[in-house]
Computed example of a mutant assay.
Amino acid sequence: MMKVVLIGGSGATGRALVQLMLKSKEITEIVVLLRRVSFEEHIKLKQVIVDFENLTDFEQVIQGNVAISCLGTTLKDAGSKDAQWKIDHDLNLQFAALAKKNGFPTFLLLSAVLADPASKIFYNRMKGSLEQDVKALDFNRLIIFQPGGLIRPNTDRLGEKTAIAALRIFNTIGLFKTYEPLSVGQVAMAMLQAINHYTTGIHTVTVKDIQKLAAETS
């Protein structure tokens, strides 16, 4: 019997993960923190409309066994690096800290390949800093996912489409396998499978690991 609390459910990966969890017999309740209602009603699903500027006001709904963050935005959508950092780092960390405070033994974090707190590249540094800070919370079990390019259904991001197309070409000749594009469905399947696959401790799940886990659920 498992209760999951998830942030970032309106994004492509989060949405795919929620749909998979609704079909899981092991997961009995899913609480999704959202800015607006984003899913059809379901007996196992509770959509909590949250003011993310005041997340601590909703601490009482962050109760369960597994906390998951799929929250993230782009620099374009955020409008500035400071705004993106506030969402991708600060808000994620605040959610993780509340989950830790409320006794969650397990936390799943959707990060990115090449996350590194010492990186000169802003995005990689932001993701690496988040990983580092969540690790410091000392969850009994922390599972960090580091996909490369994400294939989102019906995406309207031109840069994303171009990057994915280029990566696929390079992958066919054996280059940049670390960045091999994954569908959000693959990542979501791997995240669900990881809950039972990994034991206590900190686990970093690479592109190849994600592919293996996803294949186990297909």
Rank of each mutant, 00 (worst) to 15 (best):
G11N: 06
F139H: 02
I62L: 10
L142W: 12
L71F: 15
P105Q: 12
T13E: 06
N102V: 00
I144D: 01
I49Q: 02
A118T: 14
K81G: 06
F95V: 05
P147F: 08
N54R: 13
D57Y: 10
L175A: 09
I62T: 07
E26W: 14
M189D: 03
I164L: 11
I173V: 15
S129R: 08
R168F: 11
R152N: 09
F139P: 03
S38D: 04
R168P: 07
I151M: 06
S10I: 03
L75H: 12
P153C: 09
T56F: 15
H42K: 07
A165C: 10
I62N: 11
E131I: 05
R36V: 07
L34P: 01
G9A: 03
A194F: 13
E53S: 02
A190I: 02
D156Q: 13
T200V: 14
N92K: 01
I7S: 03
K161E: 02
K208L: 10
V48N: 00
R168I: 08
V31R: 12
K101Y: 13
D57H: 13
P153S: 04
N154M: 03
Q211Y: 05
T206I: 06
F58K: 02
L33W: 10
T217H: 13
L109W: 10
M191C: 00
L167Q: 05
K86A: 05
A214R: 00
G149C: 09
V134N: 10
K120E: 13
R15W: 06
V134R: 03
L71E: 09
T155N: 14
K3A: 01
G8L: 02
L150A: 01
I30F: 14
D90N: 08
A194Y: 05
T204C: 07
G185M: 08
Y198F: 14
P117R: 11
D90I: 04
A163T: 11
N140W: 02
G103Q: 09
A96S: 03
D51G: 02
K23N: 13
F95M: 15
N140E: 12
S111H: 10
E216R: 13
P117C: 05
G128D: 05
R141M: 13
D156M: 10
Q84D: 06
H89Y: 11
I27W: 14
H197K: 11
I143T: 00
G103L: 13
T204L: 07
K177R: 12
G9E: 04
R125G: 00
N171V: 01
K100D: 03
K23H: 05
V61E: 12
L20N: 11
A166I: 12
H197C: 01
T200I: 15
L6Q: 09
L108C: 04
I210H: 05
L213M: 07
A215E: 15
T178G: 12
G185I: 00
E40I: 03
I27N: 02
F122L: 09
Q146M: 01
V61D: 06
N196G: 11
K25R: 14
K208C: 07
C70V: 07
G64A: 09
A214V: 02
N196K: 14
F122R: 12
I49W: 07
Q47M: 05
I49N: 06
L114E: 15
D51C: 08
E131W: 12
